[in-house]
Design a protein around this nucleic acid. Structure first.
Lengths: 384, 384
DNA sequence: ACCTTTATGTTCCTGTCTAGAACAAAAACG
DNA sequence: CGTTTTTGTTCTAGACAGGAACATAAAGGT
């Protein structure tokens, strides 16, 4: 917690708690319900909500009456309240969306790109088109490690080091995160990891990216490049990985591993189509594709077990290809995981779940970190 | 942060901040200096310190005058203030100590034990002898995973599952942690990891235990059994580990691995003497011992690199045998670590350091978690 | 139709907390 | 021995959340 010393800090803190509760709620909160949830009396709620309404952050609308008692109001986003941009930049495409208080996500624009950093120009143009006076922050998901929060490395696109600060204006507070981390955040906020204390999320695409979530917070590490779980030698492979290390877990799990099983050289973010085809064939009963998927699932499980020994997650969620692997080979994954778990842990293994946020996980996560900036006490202070 | 809503909570929070600052300070804080550090005016400091003095938590003594201006006071532990017990229970011995505000640690009693849970009886007797009205909390370090914070598994002592709640009274608030986690906490509070955001600590004894420290906080995992980094397959071993898994890192690093190099069967917490002898021989130039230590160091480095890829620590500290390995084979460790680091990380590898707290790390960590209970807002509320 | 019950909103007052200002105190400096 | 510097003390002010009493708006019951 940042500085909290004076009663003014306390007020900001409580306003932030209220807005956070509204933002994170599964269903719209009533004013009375929010008061109960947060422990405020009706008098205090009146002043808090009043101030937030005056600041253009919250709006009250009549709630449908339910049962006895004086009707209360619903706490909804203010019609002129702040909106955040969220962008997801993938190997070959980009998406721009906006999010408002409460989590409503609306797609604004999307496109293909030419696998060069010119994509940032397209994104800036799209933002210029859609920006309004309400736009307050920007969150971006990118598909690679982000050293120090702005130096992007995407080796398989030959982006040696792309400095995001050169490609983006600083018109709004901007937060950036890699896709796996943000997909994990999305699961923690809106998906299968809600109310989970310690969890792991893995986004399996060409290879594996992941994030350790502690009380819903996806960890960043010292230089913002934590999460490369795919580049630990967890499955005994002898191959050299594109990252420069031998034996990486990602050599055996992900679309690249599927391609390699069929003799295709993986790399440069190509072959996703064929990967999907292998999964489809395996689902249809093709034996060779089935073996490729078997190997993938087994290697996945072994790695998950090893990581569970060290990090003791309550649950592990998967997105991307991981969802298919769970659907087709849950047994294999769980058996391999159990084999890799220390004996005394096997009675209570971590739950392994498919993420429920789906394809838009990184975009949703980018939206969340963007809106987090708006709800941050320092930002709030300026509006109140 | 637990509930923080009212101005009374704010006061407790600020009192806790002040006591925490006094406790964590490298040198005794002055009242004026603490005020500057925490951002309080002199008036507020007067009331805060006054209340803490009245509550028997803080005491003011005249400070040596330094330079101009009215002399201020030193903030020291109250002569009748709370004291916490700290205990360290190892495979064959136990220690009881006490800690007071500011971190002063005093050993009270110690002994050997018979490798059965009867050690807890000895410990209770020692505590009964040394308890006074000032005793306020108890922290214990144990050498094994502690499921749910009270179920202790020490497979190599054949302690299948020992429920600590049956062996301890609940006379005081009691906190328990495993030795590696508490050694890491000790480094974060009083050693080489002060002011380090993301760090890893490994305690290398017979095998490897570790902990991930985030802003000084050693992580626990969902069931309090995080930290078994030694039971991930990071070095390609084919052996079966006592934990029930194949290929564990601990098969190649630690005293057990040294023993195995010399054809001795490891296990049951025996052979530490011979392990020390191997280290001494290697230091003296014995080639066979040297090779054993080489292998240990290389395997250590490989594992550290793999973990750094995933967790991106700023620094890694080692205790136990790790201190000897750094002293004798720093180059090998760092080279193996670099080989296991993703290429783009090699320019800025994590610092690998020997812990500076020393042998008493687990005891010091136990003392810290015990005193943390005293400084916790809920406990403080009772005293104010 | 009318009163009761229930839940919520509003108003006013109280207690607590930190900050600011003015002043007092205790040292070093010249 | 007065000045400067730093700290402690006291008193007042401003802000915040809570409690109590009352008002309001619905459903239930007769």
């Amino acid at each position: 917690m940042q500085q909290m010393r004076t009663s003014a800090d306390l007020r900001i803190h409580n306003q932030a708690r209220l807005l956070r509760a509204v933002h994170d709620a599964d269903e719209p909160l009533t004013r009375a319900g929010a008061g109960r949830l947060l422990g405020f009396g009706r008098n205090t709620m009146a002043t808090l909500v009043g101030e937030l309404e005056a600041a253009g952050l919250l709006h009250e609308v009549r709630a449908d009456v339910a049962g006895r008692g004086r009707p209360t109001t619903l706490l909804v986003p203010h019609p002129r309240g702040p909106i955040a941009f969220a962008a997801d930049i993938r190997e070959d495409s980009w998406t721009l969306a906006q999010i408002e208080l409460g989590g409503l996500l609306t797609e604004l624009a999307a496109g293909e790109h030419d696998r060069t950093p010119a994509v940032f120009e397209e994104l800036r143009a799209a933002m210029k088109r859609h920006a309004t006076g309400r736009t307050a922050a920007l969150g971006i998901a990118v598909t690679g490690p982000l050293r120090d929060g702005h130096r992007l490395h995407i080796s398989h696109l030959d982006w040696g080091e792309v400095d995001l600060r050169r490609h983006l204006d600083d018109e709004w507070p901007t937060a950036v995160g890699n896709d796996a981390r943000l997909a994990g955040l999305a699961e923690a906020r809106r998906g299968a990891l809600r109310r989970t204390g310690t969890a792991l999320h893995f986004h399996i695409d060409f290879d594996i990216g992941g994030t350790l979530l502690l009380d819903g917070d996806p960890q960043r590490g010292a230089a913002n490049i934590a999460g490369e779980f795919g580049h630990m030698p967890l499955t005994g492979s002898r191959l050299r990985c594109m990252c420069g290390v031998h034996g990486c877990w990602s050599l055996d799990v992900g679309t690249n591993a599927l391609l390699r099983h069929f003799g295709r050289e993986p790399g440069h973010g190509r072959g996703r189509e064929f990967g999907r085809e292998i999964v489809a064939r395996a689902a249809a009963g093709d034996p060779e594709a089935g073996r490729a998927v078997d190997d993938n699932a087994t290697a996945l499980g072994r790695g998950l077990g090893a990581l569970a020994n060290a990090l003791d997650p309550e649950a592990i969620t998967l997105s991307g290809l991981g969802v298919d692997l769970i659907r087709l080979r849950r047994d294999l994954i769980e058996a391999a995981c159990a084999d890799a778990l220390m004996e005394f842990r096997r009675a209570t293994p971590p739950r392994i779940l498919a993420g429920t946020v789906g394809e838009i996980g990184p975009l949703r996560g980018a939206a969340e970190i963007a809106f987090d900036a708006v709800l941050h006490p320092d930002e709030l202070r300026k509006r109140l």
